[in-house]
Simulated assay, not measured.
Amino acid sequence: MKVLLTGAAGSIGQVVSLGLVDRGHEVVGLDLARTPDGFDGTWHTVDCVDPDAVADAVGAQPLDAVVHLASHPDEASLPATLASHVITTAALLDAMVEHQVDRIVYASSNHAVGRTPRTHLLGIDARPRPDTFYGVGKVAAEALLSLYADRHGIDAIACRIGSFLPEPASVRHLSTWLSHDDCVRMVDAALTAPAPGFAMIYGISANTRAWWDLTPGRELGYHPRDDAEEFAGRVAPAPADADEAAYVGGPFALPAFHRSALDRTGE
Rank of each mutant, 00 (worst) to 15 (best):
E244R: 02
A112T: 13
H152R: 03
D243V: 02
I201R: 09
I157L: 06
E142N: 01
A232M: 10
I12K: 15
Y106S: 07
W212T: 13
G7L: 07
E267T: 13
P255G: 01
A8L: 04
L63N: 03
F133C: 00
D227Q: 11
M1H: 15
P194F: 03
I104M: 15
A60R: 08
R151C: 02
V139F: 09
R115A: 14
L145Y: 07
C48L: 07
H111L: 13
L121N: 11
A33T: 09
P196W: 04
T6K: 15
A236T: 10
D241W: 00
A195S: 14
Y106F: 15
M186G: 04
P166F: 05
R34T: 12
L121P: 03
R225Q: 14
S108E: 04
V101E: 09
R34G: 14
H180T: 12
A156R: 03
R185W: 08
A9W: 03
E98K: 15
G162M: 08
T119R: 12
L144Q: 05
H180F: 11
L18P: 15
R151Q: 03
A232E: 10
R34A: 13
L82G: 04
P166M: 07
A240H: 05
G266E: 12
V139R: 10
Y106L: 15
E244I: 04
L145W: 09
M200P: 13
L214N: 04
G59F: 07
P251Q: 07
L82A: 04
P79Y: 06
Y148L: 02
G233E: 06
A149V: 02
L262W: 12
G153V: 06
A112F: 11
G29E: 02
L191M: 08
T265L: 11
V187A: 00
S205H: 08
Y134M: 00
D182G: 04
V139L: 14
A193V: 12
V16D: 01
V21Y: 02
G13Q: 11
Y202H: 14
D52Y: 13
T88C: 05
T88A: 08
D188H: 14
T81Q: 09
D227V: 06
D227M: 08
E75D: 00
V86W: 08
D243T: 02
A90F: 13
G203R: 01
L93T: 05
M1P: 05
V136I: 15
Y148E: 01
Y202I: 10
H258K: 00
P62W: 05
A238V: 04
G7E: 03
D181W: 11
L122R: 02
L191T: 07
